[in-house]
Design a protein around this nucleic acid. Structure first.
Lengths: 384, 384
DNA sequence: CGCCACAGTT
DNA sequence: AACTGTGGCG
């Protein structure tokens, strides 16, 4: 029996919007840790991995693992019937072939219930490419979206190159060639941390965290503060990967797992998710946090709009700054079509992380508070 | 070698948006005075003339005249990759077959470079119909857009009539007929000045000015002097058109040519208050230079500034007021399709000037600070 | 919470 | 080129 209550139906709507063009049907794998989804895109070129930790729910209960086979298009339609700020509860009996969605308006007595028919979907066992990447770029998700969209006008593919100079996105086309160079903020340090596959804490905030690695230069970013700690714990717990069970793919992961103890049965949480960022008050502690996690930071639009409420500059920089970490020079070429698709996930979170190593699939990760949406895309061969 | 730096890429984007439906390929003629473009629309019915004075650039350098053959659609795509407030630099080596566009974000480290492939385009030698018009209307560009858009729903063509009553736009259609009368502000005076082809000062601001210059007004473009009486003369002078060299188009009317070189010896213009950019102090000097050269008029810039003398306030009101000048009654009929197209230029400037004489092409002029966009459209024959 | 503006998509 | 959706501001 699954019963998962989300504080904001909007999050789920955005999540589905982000992946619906890539995936038509997928299993929502529910277990006590949360809900996960993995699928290859329709042409089997890209892999999508979504994780929603139980900590991201206002209430979460899942007695035993159950895969819910869902047609993404149908679920999207049903979710359109929810207002963004409705409280959304997902329910499904152990062997039912339907998923029940209940929308409760926060300030009224409206309660809507929908039943989505489930389907049996072969669990494609997917492996997640897990590697230690040679380069990591953390940037505004809307800027990333803008860049790949712009370049997609010129050509079919983009070469992404990380060097001491920064990160360069370049595309050649019939009528014009173009490239965008992001210099990055601060010195370029070593890659501080991997994506922590299968778990989520990670840079969810915005990647800036890196508490860990000693030598790492990266410093600035972040940090974050207490949150981080908290996060970390949380993340550790969460990191247990369920996917793991299926079998990994080609890539091995490094061990983040060790902390698996999560175990927390925390069933009721009240919105934690947000808390991460919240700090306005505690900012004193560490300023830097990018608050980016979920909603608060929202600002996204970089450009013109600068004046945010927050006022702190950090915010600003957090949202717009580009952080580049690199162990060695990388240069890979990808299909812009997919990157453009991935970049729609910008509505979920204002920061995106790109992890790259030569000849290895690119990982595009949107880590928001209680989970992540990650995309893996193999480079074009012959890329330079 | 060309190197032209614009403070706001948005201006160029708007400019291209304005003409891209009319023209597919065109030569951007660059010389020390600035950049000019002239082209017939794809069906050779309308003529577009764009002038960007070097004074409109943050930085401008063009060692020797060079025509850059551009596919407008491609350039539009490349410009889409710029944010409106990016600093945009156009560069091209002397014999290169590419135009380099560099976009620098004002507040970040993003630098994007695009290379647009150039093409050889026959300079259609275009002549600019240069006449002393019998009527001139200055009005809000958005109002003009609205009127022609509205009337285009009724019929295919519009009769524009300037009389003592004001200016009337009338269209007859299958289902309905309609007409819009603009009475104009103040008494209707004589036409104060011609469009000063090839140069821009002119009424760019908006027409209302009329100071009188004794005779030669021309020189300064800047100004707006437009005095009526003189204007005639003046206009003649000003009319010198550089394009001329190519050959005139069909529309030429009469002799304007003779002045080609602008004969006016007045090289120096005196006052130019405007000169904006540069150092204010020496503005005068440089100014002259601009005109001094061959194409005299070029510069001007009233622009944003409006600073003309008289107009300051007028400018303001100018935005909505309609100014009508008429030497004799005119009535011409035009295809609304083209006027609707021309009216998209409203995004570049909030005032538009219509110059008309019976049986002569209409001139629709958007004179903004550092340049202008002008359209010439032959009347339908049989117009009344 | 509602309204307005800007951007992206069709 | 127009419409819809999203984001920001009041």
């Amino acid at each position: 029996m699954l019963e998962a209550k989300l504080n904001e139906a909007g999050m789920l709507k955005k999540l589905l919007d982000a992946i619906k063009e890539l995936v038509t049907d997928a299993n929502f794998e529910c277990n006590e840790e949360g809900i996960n989804l993995q699928a290859m895109d329709n042409s089997h070129v890209a892999l999508v991995s979504v994780q929603l930790s139980q900590t991201g729910f206002k209430k979460y209960r899942c007695d035993r693992p159950m895969p819910l086979g869902v047609n993404i298009g149908s679920l999207t339609k049903v979710l359109k019937c929810a207002k963004d700020d409705d409280i959304c509860t997902l329910k499904s009996a152990d062997d039912a072939d339907i998923l029940n969605l209940v929308y409760e308006a926060k300030n009224t007595d409206r309660i809507a219930e929908y039943e989505l028919k489930l389907m049996d979907i072969d669990s494609d066992s997917l492996g997640i490419p897990d590697t230690d990447y040679e380069a990591r770029v953390v940037m505004s998700s809307s800027e990333f979206a803008r860049i790949v969209r712009d370049l997609s006008q010129l050509g079919e593919s983009v070469r992404i190159e990380v060097s001491k100079e920064g990160v360069r996105f370049a595309s050649d086309g019939e009528a014009a060639n173009g490239n965008v160079l992001l210099k990055g903020k601060g010195p370029i340090g070593k890659v501080s941390s991997g994506p922590v596959n299968n778990s989520q804490g990670e840079g969810s905030g915005d990647g800036e965290e890196e508490d860990v690695k000693p030598e790492v230069v990266e410093v600035d970013e972040g940090e974050e503060d207490e949150d981080s700690d908290k996060k970390k714990k949380a993340s550790n717990k969460t990191k247990v990967k369920k996917e793991k069970t299926d079998g990994d793919v080609d890539m091995e992961d490094g061990g983040d797992e060790e902390d698996e103890d999560d175990g927390e049965p925390e069933v009721e949480k009240d919105d934690e998710e947000e808390d991460e960022d919240e700090e306005a008050g505690d900012s004193k502690k560490r300023k830097k946090k990018a608050n980016g996690t979920s909603k608060p930071a929202k600002k996204s639009k970089t450009s013109k709009g600068k004046g945010k409420r927050k006022d702190d500059d950090e915010e600003e920089e957090a949202t717009d700054s580009v952080v580049i970490e690199m162990n060695s020079h990388v240069s890979l070429t990808f299909s812009l079509k997919y990157l453009v698709n991935f970049s729609k996930t910008a509505s979920l979170h204002n920061r995106v992380q790109l992890y790259m190593s030569n000849e290895v699939p690119l990982l595009v990760s949107y880590d928001f508070g209680p989970g992540f949406v990650r995309y893996y895309l193999a480079p074009k061969i012959g890329d330079d």
